[in-house]
């Protein structure tokens, strides 16, 4: 979605920049924003207003598609947009996954949430571990153990898992 934001930004910057340029230039600063020539141009070209209407419709339609896509994406990142049975199964798996994750060495807390749609589900996990934990080893243990079992249980071998590690936070103190 960023490129579209950038494109809208560039269009606005272009319009604003052009307006500033016309306003600050000596030759055009005293001319009206809408000149009589513009009216004459519109009257003599019958295609003008239909083209403007088409452009507005296209912009409105693309904006609506973009809006719907963003809302779906934003919701899908936070909530499970899927049916009741799939959601119940996912919740049960999430509980098991959390329990098994907590049994791994160094793990202080774990949060598991299934998000996304039925066609693109996401398992979001946040694992809080001790500051000196070997995160690479913990990740390997998690992926090869509990996560693999839950994927098999849900019959989703390619279930995308978003795993964020955080560290418990006793204030660091110098030694010696």
């Amino acid at each position: 979605m960023r490129p579209v934001i950038g494109m809208v930004g560039a269009a606005l910057l272009g319009l604003g920049g052009a307006g500033l340029g016309l306003g600050l230039a000596d030759g055009t600063a005293r001319e009206a924003v809408l000149r009589p020539e513009a009216f004459r141009h519109v009257v003599t070209h019958e295609w003008f207003w239909p083209v403007v209407a088409g452009a507005c419709e296209t912009a409105g339609l693309l904006g609506a598609i973009w809006l719907a896509g963003q809302c779906r994406d934003a919701l899908g990142r936070r909530r499970a947009l899927m049916g009741g049975r799939a959601r119940r199964l996912a919740r049960a798996c999430g509980r098991d996954l959390r329990r098994e994750t907590l049994e791994l060495p160094g793990v202080a807390a774990a949060h598991v949430r299934l998000t996304g749609t039925r066609s693109r589900p996401r398992l979001r996990m946040t694992v809080l571990c001790a500051p000196d934990t070997r995160v690479n080893a913990l990740r390997a243990a998690l992926v090869e153990g509990p996560l693999e079992r839950r994927r098999a249980e849900l019959a989703l071998p390619g279930l995308v898992t978003v795993l964020t590690f955080r560290f418990t936070d006793p204030p660091p103190r110098p030694r010696g």
């Binding site: 979605m1 209407a53 296209t58 409105g60």
Partner: peptide, 22 residues
């Protein structure tokens, strides 16, 4: 970050402006 906080209002403004103009 998907920049939803910026993208959704911008998309809404584009939709409303384009729709109202049309």
């Amino acid at each position: 970050s998907s920049r939803a906080a910026v993208g959704i209002p911008t998309a809404l403004a584009v939709t409303v402006t384009g729709g109202a103009g049309a």
